[in-house]
Structure formats: C-alpha cells, structure tokens
Amino acid sequence: MAATTDGGIVIAGMRCGGCGLQSAPPQPVCPHCGGDREIGPVSLPPRGTLYSFTIVHVAPAGLEDEAPYVLGIVELEGGARITARVRTADPGALAIAAPLQLSEIRAGVCFFDPA
C-alpha cells in the first residue's frame, strides 16, 4: 500500500470512472460496482475520519503481545475506506468521526494517529 510523494506517505488506491468511487487497494475491477472500465490508480490522502472502531482485547495467534489494540475502519478524504490500526494512549477518548492522520505503513498495514 505504501508510496511516497513529496516526503509524505500516501495510500495506493484506485478510482472507478464508472461509479465515481475511490477504493483501496488497487484491483482489476471496482469493489463497489464491479465495473472494469475507466479504472485508474490514485494516491489516496493520508488523512481521514474514523467510520467505526473496536478495542481488541482477545487477539488472534501471533498478535497476542499487541493486545489491547485499536482496529478501525478509516474513511479517507475522498471517500475510500480501509481497515487499519489506530494508535492512541487513550482509546476511551476515540469516537466515530474522529479525525485521523496516517503515521506509518508497516508490512502493508496502515497505522493512524488522532489528528
């Protein structure tokens, strides 16, 4: 998902000319309308808001050491949504629609901080 322009991190995504919606990651057909024409790559902005989230207390094998952690669906500026991690010292203060800033992409996983 990572790409770098002007020293900032952006998220590799796509825009469908058929339905006009943006999404990530890039793929041969639009995940929203199923169309395959007028598909083009776009760099998605590293900013968005929290669409929904959860605090994971029981983690799957391999991630036990990281729990509790915040998992969220982030709606990026422009409308694309991705599943990502949110890093915050105060998960109790998080709320739907909270503004977020991308801080890091590690092994394909986007990590956001409260903006």
């Binding site: 959860t54 994971v56 799957p60 998992l71 394909g108």
Partner: peptide, 30 residues
C-alpha cells in the same frame, strides 16, 4: 480465533489484526 479469522480477507483485514469479534464489534458500534 486465527482459523476463524481466515474467513475474513487475509491481507485487507486479518493481517491488520481483524478477528471475527472485532468485525462484528465495528458493526455494533456503528
């Protein structure tokens, strides 16, 4: 939990740390 998580998308959800309770938790919060 890991095997059940394989019913989610491997790269776009499970690798991010999603489990089935976490996906339905996000539905519940919304």
């Amino acid at each position: 939990t890991r095997v059940l998580g394989e019913a989610a998308h491997a790269e776009e959800e499970a690798a991010v740390g999603a489990t089935f309770p976490s996906l339905f938790a996000m539905i519940a919060r919304r």
